[in-house]
Nucleic acid binder design. Sequence first.
DNA 1: ATCCGGCATTGAAACATTTCATTTATTGCC
DNA 2: GGCAATAAATGAAATGTTTCAATGCCGGAT
Lengths: 341, 341
Amino acid sequence: MAPGVGIKEVAREAGVSVGTVSNVINRPESVSEETRARVLSTIERLGYVRQESARQLRAGHSRIIALLVLDMANPFFVDVARGAERAAREAGLGVMVCNSAQSPEEEADYLGLFAEQRVRGVLMTPADMTGRNLASFRRQPIPFVLVDRVLPSAEGCSVSVDDVTGGDLAVRHLLGLGHRTLAYVSGPMRLAQCRDRREGALRALRERGLGESALRHVEVGRLDVASGRDAGARLLGMSPRPTAVFCANDLLALGVLQSLYGAGVSVPGEVALVGYDDIEFAAAAAVPLTSVRQPAFRMGRTAAELLMEETGERAGDHRHQRIVLQPELVVRGSSLVRSRG
Amino acid sequence: MAPGVGIKEVAREAGVSVGTVSNVINRPESVSEETRARVLSTIERLGYVRQESARQLRAGHSRIIALLVLDMANPFFVDVARGAERAAREAGLGVMVCNSAQSPEEEADYLGLFAEQRVRGVLMTPADMTGRNLASFRRQPIPFVLVDRVLPSAEGCSVSVDDVTGGDLAVRHLLGLGHRTLAYVSGPMRLAQCRDRREGALRALRERGLGESALRHVEVGRLDVASGRDAGARLLGMSPRPTAVFCANDLLALGVLQSLYGAGVSVPGEVALVGYDDIEFAAAAAVPLTSVRQPAFRMGRTAAELLMEETGERAGDHRHQRIVLQPELVVRGSSLVRSRG
DNA sequence: ATCCGGCATTGAAACATTTCATTTATTGCC
DNA sequence: GGCAATAAATGAAATGTTTCAATGCCGGAT
């Protein structure tokens, strides 16, 4: 390692003061053209690279925003990340994407890391239902925005999607197709998402004069494909077998689809299927999946913008906001029209 | 922002010197039990959080390793990231995952960022075929490991998978099933991956006394599902239509599958299909996809370990290594047995 | 000749930590 | 009681940058 080619060496070599070198880098317009050229060429020649840690030490905070997601393997969060990244880069900030993998402990670790790093802000989808991690993080003077969750106490920004409406859309669609025996494949009901989507589903049923009994409940432990396969097996064993299935996310739906297909049950012929999230693979399935599209990219982007608004120059006039985006039903092959009942 | 609750305030409040506080944090064993307890409780009470930038300034490098991948939307890289993360966390390091999205410019930007951050090391799958970005980055005293690529000049570590063998495995399997009219759906041939997998495919053909003509070549611009659909459309138009298709990755294969399925062509009945990578969604497709499994998680993990070896205490006796992992064929429904030809 | 204003440049302070050579206290030993 | 050895604690230096009040310089106005 060429140990120290710092601003000082550059200054000495170019025959100017360190202050001038700093100015060349940070406010080039305040330096005479000639000096600027000389300094720049020296920087180039010496291969000087600014040391961010020193700058940061002085500034008090870094130029990075952290994004802590629940599951990097879920394309939904990848889209969120891309949205956040886009917004951040436009503002000259970096994004550090981390994965709590739904573990409150990992989440706590990462939040600690972020605090030590004095990141500019944090975007997160909390894994810790008790809110303890979040509460303890709030002692830090680091702004944060909740993604895909609303803050109970309304004491911070959040961007989420209206899950009740999403559930309503899905089930309304299935009812419109004539189905009367439905099932809801859910993840853990302690997740607000799963509860809200069911709530929406029930709302749609009520509107048609149907009760809770028309919606069989299948609950699995995780929101992934393997759990979807389990759910599929359970659906196959039901009698009467539901003719329409609404899944709390696309991964579950893909698992269900696979199970049904493997058992020779035709989709959408015998069972209509609707997922949630509209991840890329939903459209890519052999039977393209009808799904409730979440504006994931936009959510990430909006969250980052909200954060930067809070961080930015005129942070004084920032009011915490609760932004709720609307989902949208995307109808594809897995729920084709059938005679109305 | 509580402006400065630093080590100094803690020291004053606990009635010790700053050095002692630092010792409590970094070498607790060198401090008397009583003092340690007092300092720790003061830290707790004041909510002191170490400022990483200052520590880093002194240390000269950060405690983060950077991972720069080609495509965050590809589950393959997500697995690589998880592997790297695992290894890094075991060593108490953080991982910053960044996405060059195959853009040499973005790649250059990120490498610049990493240099300024003095990250502990960089794991990357280069997007820049000219090698210019890499060459200029090598001026930095930051160790790096190439992932899924080998370094032409052998002047650094790399972890890759034997793609020739992978292609061989796939086509050998198809030939064994009796197929004689094959197609290779490839991404851009400037990618070593695509070239090598084809090379392996040809090797398998040669061994059976078949020539290049038995392998129709379908090349598309990107390695994603949409391109796979295009490829599928082109396959459908061929005559004679290939009875077996080997795709350069699973995303392409899923696209092809969807195209074929949409056209009413049965898989594996009329066309046998083999993908590459064995991403989770390959197994989750309605017709589970036969695929060449890449040890993605292990690759990420190994790369991180290699990096830490180079960074670590006894970095002196570190020799650059070129590790080549072996792929493995996973046979599933998309290529079922059929009569031997 | 003197003063003024504006511009370019300077140099030292400040940021929060770690490290290490010293200092101070404690214990055991003769 | 004095001395050496050990343990614990100290405090100042060093890290690389940014910022800002102060300085120097030059041309033009008085």
